[in-house]
Nucleic acid binder design. Sequence first.
DNA 1: CCCGCGTACGAAAATATCTTTCACCCGTGA
DNA 2: TCACGGGTGAAAGATATTTTCGTACGCGGG
Lengths: 309, 309
Amino acid sequence: MTHDVKEIFAGDAPPAPAALAAKVRTLAPSMTRSMQRVAEAVAGDPAGCAALTVTGLAELTGTSEATVVRTARLLGYPGYRDLRLALAGLAAQQQSGRAPAVTADIAVDDPLPDVVAKLAYDEQQTLADTAAALDTVQLGAAVTALAAARRVDVYGVGASGLVAQDLTQKLLRIGIVSHAHSDPHLAVTNAVQLRAKDVAIAITHSGSTGDVIEPLRVAFEHGATTVAITGRPDGPVAQYADHVLTTSTARESELRPAAMSSRTSQLLVVDCLFVGVAQRTYETAAPALSASYEALAHRHSPRGGGAAR
Amino acid sequence: MTHDVKEIFAGDAPPAPAALAAKVRTLAPSMTRSMQRVAEAVAGDPAGCAALTVTGLAELTGTSEATVVRTARLLGYPGYRDLRLALAGLAAQQQSGRAPAVTADIAVDDPLPDVVAKLAYDEQQTLADTAAALDTVQLGAAVTALAAARRVDVYGVGASGLVAQDLTQKLLRIGIVSHAHSDPHLAVTNAVQLRAKDVAIAITHSGSTGDVIEPLRVAFEHGATTVAITGRPDGPVAQYADHVLTTSTARESELRPAAMSSRTSQLLVVDCLFVGVAQRTYETAAPALSASYEALAHRHSPRGGGAAR
DNA sequence: CCCGCGTACGAAAATATCTTTCACCCGTGA
DNA sequence: TCACGGGTGAAAGATATTTTCGTACGCGGG
């Protein structure tokens, strides 16, 4: 019922977001003993206090609810509710501010939450690096070749083999005939078939994986357009590649094998290729995409997954 | 190595701090219309919503207070009050933290450099969301099971099949007997063999891929420890999973199929599993890792530029 | 030493806010 | 068409917050 004319918030207009600790110190002298206890608790453990109700905080500080509210007012908030909100914000800030410490390597005794944070951070870094270093001219050339290809062969072994398969799956989805090879012999056998309008893609982090270079060489010599996705643009694989797409190399550690970040990087490049090609061939790609989506729908249980409650 | 006593709040995870936006997207499909409106408002303007009471938010979204509370519950909070607190925290983080996320969709006529930037950004976002939303308790449980497993079977079809293979490859590298199945029949056939000390992992974004659920169910019924890696923690697959690891769901567009971000998310989870297991079994994992590294070295041509460094 | 004044403080009433219950309504499938 | 089940909101019920108001304590003066 207090819809009266509220006094203008004289001195301090907005409630303090992060400047809370400072405000507590500033106003401490003008506080009574009980209020100081409350303010102290609040400044000392924002997160903890944010979880408490007025009553809880009153008990914790050995004071009354009224005093808590009075303190909140003194700190510049309309009431305890708002102080609490600010407190939660402050806690969140402190929390996130502590994050940057994850730059370190992953250690054997790191707790799981740290592992998650570090891995995520590292992979984010890898993505940023890759995007920054990716030569869009080369990428464009590769896209052009793919968009016009009669047939696409992708070579990759080990971890890169999975990336090769990923690319293949995607290209097939938009109607581009492509095949992934992880068997070097078969790869070479197939490479012989390639012609001028075809494209061969080799994926190798080290840039010197013989099993992958060999088929690329064959394709190259048979006149196909060749692309290399590698972390070593100066490696042997580049020799037979018309276009080289460079993936980034992150530092690796014992617990974090190189394959991990190279895979992330390779996948980004592959995604870029895919989207680029999809753009170029939009007329045919769009229907193909929705068609493949439709086809899959019935492989999932009736209710689209909402089910089971 | 004594990851001992941790106050475990049975079952569901504690409230999420910054993982809120991700959680909204993850749970959105299982929400009713009204709830989605609320969730949308909350995700769209955390700061604004934090300033509102239940009644206010209900009016804003054109729903009732009951619905708002229900939504808060669904998002994992005990009630609206706690959601509001988290909201305040989120707002504070965004405020102080990075610039607002301007995630424009990828358009057909975007120039290639933009495509690269957007894709990289989206994937980074996906990683951050996944890491924030990942339940480390569940992860820990899964890791424990894996570390002690006699044998591990991983099920995944389509794009998830590649993730399954990735996990398998990694586990094999540290001496854990694992196998990836993308053939539903063979998967079931093998699932029958599983016993108490074995682990079965199902990877499915939709959470309702029958071909993957079936083998998991069989494994579950045969007493194996079962893990689900899915974007729909409430989907059918969770029914047969001892531990559910949630992957994030990014908004998808025509040119950027869901498979793309779900794969990124799944891979992060898989990496976390791997590193977690490697930590636990360090004694045997470390030698195994360097052994596999050594074995590979000679597959790269000698002068390739230092080869597989 | 006692008295009066002013302020600090808390108990409890008053109010706002959150939560739960329950009945309605709408779409769905028989 | 009807019965059914789940989604939804109105209002009752429970908590939390704010306000009111009375008591007690400290301090200076009589």
